[in-house]
Design a protein around this nucleic acid. Structure first.
Lengths: 343, 343
DNA sequence: TGTTAGCACTCGATTGATTAGAGTGCTAAC
DNA sequence: GTTAGCACTCTAATCAATCGAGTGCTAACA
């Protein structure tokens, strides 16, 4: 069966109405709601077709219809009219001088949560494609070195390295020069074995230290590959009865707290290369099992080249997709702007 | 009226039983439960007294009794028999080399949550009484300096300082020496104006930078006074029906997520100088309004001198106080040990 | 041929009444 | 001072009755 123009209009009406009320919507409601001027009986026939086609379903025999995952999918793919959401506060908040990346991200997460009434998450941008900008070894203690690594974008990593041998200032200086001249401007992937070997040779008797340092650098950068995720508004899920029962709520809250599972979502979003930047997971489409009763909308944001992170909004399936997509577009755009301005 | 020996025993029995079951406990239960060999009627009389004295209350006329806040307080103050909780995993986990303080704290929070089945929080130790161990300025970019500050206990702070004037390597070295010789070993409070003035003089034409750096140091350390708090197991509250209804759960979850409000708890705990290290807040005693239906047990842990943080366990009023207190004692002790071993 | 009015039917949700059971308070007896 | 006994209270569970929203189907209409 084909989806006639009229069926589409009815689907749209059903979904719109259901998004608002959260109640199954009946034929009579649609009959009045739309400008189609059809009686409830006609609508019933059409709805019966739509149900057969899998776009809507009945919770029980004598209830109205609610959209199925397939129905939502249809809506998101073809029927959405993006509302552009003004985020007045956003600019102000972002422009507050926030040199600390993590603070900024936390704020964005919170802002989004307050603004949308859904739960939100944001992952710190992954930096592994980025270039080393500065390396410094310092002696902090008799047997401890401090390695500071700055990556493009001013992301700073520290690592304490225990050393057994004593190093005098001069050696330290040499090592610093050695490291910086050799590694500066390189991306992590570009550091290969032959380079390391070469550096070890140059370091002479201190080759052990060089190895340690390289390890530390690698580790301190990789440390973030169990990546930093900030969340906010988890308690918003209590606003939607269909998610608020103990079982589900507990699972979702847990997912949010553990964050571990959210990384999958991030990976999945970042992995999809050929996307416009926004992805919508409806119900079972989500990579996170515990969220199969939710919908998740994710966006990829980009800070300069190579630094990409993910913003996600998690809500009920009857989420206001139009608004959420609009908001996410605005936010990612703003983040982009912000970065350009800073550099 | 006085609390007779027998009344105390009955109170104890009531609380113990209620902690286990969460159900109001009746006279007949007590009559069998205790070794007093009294009939339910006698117990009833005693319970009637206890109710009049405010230690227990009846949810409704024909229900058993439950402890009031005052009753719990009595229990905690005088009737508890600490069970020493073996935390086998704890040692292993702690001994995993965890140089990253924040990772360690997160793990402790999680471990506690899993172990107790309550929600937990842990605040990073405040460091403002601690001594500067190492300061380093480096040029990261033409117009950006990186200030790295290491405080005793190997807490590392970074700060990017924008500079207008150009600095050559030699000047930078001089500044580093100046800063380190002057500030090393000092606590933040000990840095006073005259010292700063003296340093500025020595810095000559670069006095502006010195001021900036000092500011940055102060700020980078103070930055943490909106203190870092890690939480875990928030979803455990769903295990206790008396906390699991939407309204309460939502509030508690929110408190946990925002963390802002938890700082009050931390402040309150740390403020109490003359305590043994463990505090119990029952119901309304808690400084956090949203937790008035919970009990909160907090402990102060100390890493060396001056670095103190707070661990908190949040659960229903019928929390297993004995176990929780025992566990907290173990944990704080372990943290102490760990620190000693590391330094 | 598509649309509509009408009607019987279904099924969840609400309401009210009844019952069972746990626990108390009180009194009288031990 | 303790206990047995009994009336009383209140909650929770159960069940039936009812309501109403919404459907599916049929027959009539344009």
């Amino acid at each position: 069966m084909q989806l006639s123009e009229r069926k589409i209009k009815i689907m749209q009406a059903i979904i719109r109405n259901y998004l608002e009320t959260g109640e199954p919507v009946g034929s009579r409601t649609i009959s009045k709601y739309t400008d189609l001027n059809l009686s409830s009986a006609t609508i019933r026939n059409e709805m019966s077709d739509l149900e057969e086609m899998g776009y809507i379903l009945q919770p029980h025999t004598s209830a109205g219809r609610i959209p199925s995952d397939k129905g939502y999918r249809l809506y998101v793919d073809t029927m959405m009219e993006e509302k552009d959401k003004e985020l007045e506060e956003l600019k102000e908040m972002m422009l507050e001088r926030e040199d600390k990346m993590d603070h900024l991200l936390k704020q964005v997460a919170k802002l989004l949560a307050v603004n949308t009434n859904y739960a939100t998450m944001i992952s710190a941008p992954t930096i592994h494609t980025n270039k080393l900008k500065f390396i410094q070894l310092s002696r902090v203690d008799v047997n401890q070195l401090l390695a500071v690594v700055v990556v493009e974008g001013n992301v700073i990593k520290n690592n304490i390295i225990p050393v057994s041998e004593k190093l005098d200032d001069e050696t330290l200086l040499k090592l610093n020069i050695l490291l910086n001249t050799n590694l500066n401007g390189l991306a992590l992937e570009e550091i290969n074995l032959s380079m390391i070997t070469a550096m070890k040779q140059q370091a002479g008797i201190h080759s052990a230290i060089v190895a340690d340092v390289i390890d530390a650098i690698a580790e301190s950068i990789r440390a973030d590959e169990d990546l930093e995720i900030y969340t906010s508004g988890a308690n918003n899920i209590f606003k939607y009865p269909e998610l608020a029962d103990q079982q589900k709520a507990s699972e979702i809250i847990n997912t949010f707290e553990e964050k571990q599972m959210l990384t999958e979502l991030v990976q999945d979003t970042l992995a999809d290369e050929n996307n416009t930047g926004i992805q919508v997971y409806i119900g079972n489409e989500t990579p996170i099992q515990t969220m199969k009763d939710c919908s998740v909308v994710t966006a990829t944001y980009e800070l300069g080249e190579g630094m990409r992170g993910t913003i996600g909004i998690i809500g009920p399936k009857r989420m206001d997709y139009d608004k959420v997509v609009g908001t996410l577009k605005t936010i990612t755009h703003q983040l982009d702007e912000l970065y350009k301005k800073k550099t």
